[in-house]
C-alpha cells in the first residue's frame, strides 16, 4: 500500500466514523459526507495520473459536480429542518419512531 492509498483510506475511514459515531448536529454530518466525497475526489484523480490514462481525467470533475449537488441538497434540508424543528439537532428527529 503506497502512502497515497493509505492517506486516502485513512481520510475516508475517519470521515465515515465521524458520520456514524458523532451524531449531535446535522451540519457536522453533512461536513463528514463532504469530506468523504473530497477524499474520493483525491482517489479518483490519483488513478488516471498513476496509470496515465487521459480518458479518465474528467471523472473527478463529474464526481465533484454530483457531490456539490448533494451538498446543496443537504444544506437545503438543514434549512428546512431548522424551519420545522427549530434547530439542527439530530436528536429532535424523533417524530416517526412509534
Amino acid at each position: 500500500m503506497t502512502p497515497l492509498h493509505f492517506s486516502y483510506l485513512s481520510a475516508f475511514i475517519v470521515s465515515i466514523m465521524g458520520l456514524s459515531l458523532h451524531r449531535t448536529y446535522l451540519i457536522s454530518t453533512l461536513l463528514c459526507l463532504e469530506s468523504m466525497m473530497l477524499s474520493m475526489f483525491i482517489a479518483l484523480s490519483m488513478w488516471p495520473i498513476q496509470l496515465q490514462t487521459s480518458s479518465f481525467m474528467l471523472t473527478p470533475m463529474l464526481m465533484l459536480s454530483f457531490s456539490a449537488c448533494e451538498a446543496g441538497t443537504g444544506l437545503s434540508l438543514l434549512v428546512a429542518s431548522s424551519r420545522t424543528h427549530g434547530s439542527d439537532h439530530l436528536q429532535n428527529l424523533n417524530l416517526l419512531q412509534c
Binding site: 454530518t29 459526507l33 448533494e70 428546512a80 420545522t84 424543528h85 428527529l93 417524530l95 416517526l96
Partner: peptide, 22 residues
C-alpha cells in the same frame, strides 16, 4: 412541508448519500 416529511427526507438523504459514497 410538515416536520414529519422533513425528518423522513433527512433520514433518507443521509443513508442514501452514505451508501452511494461507500
Amino acid at each position: 412541508h410538515h416536520p414529519r416529511a422533513i425528518e423522513a427526507t433527512i433520514k433518507y438523504f443521509l443513508t442514501q448519500a452514505t451508501a452511494s459514497t461507500l
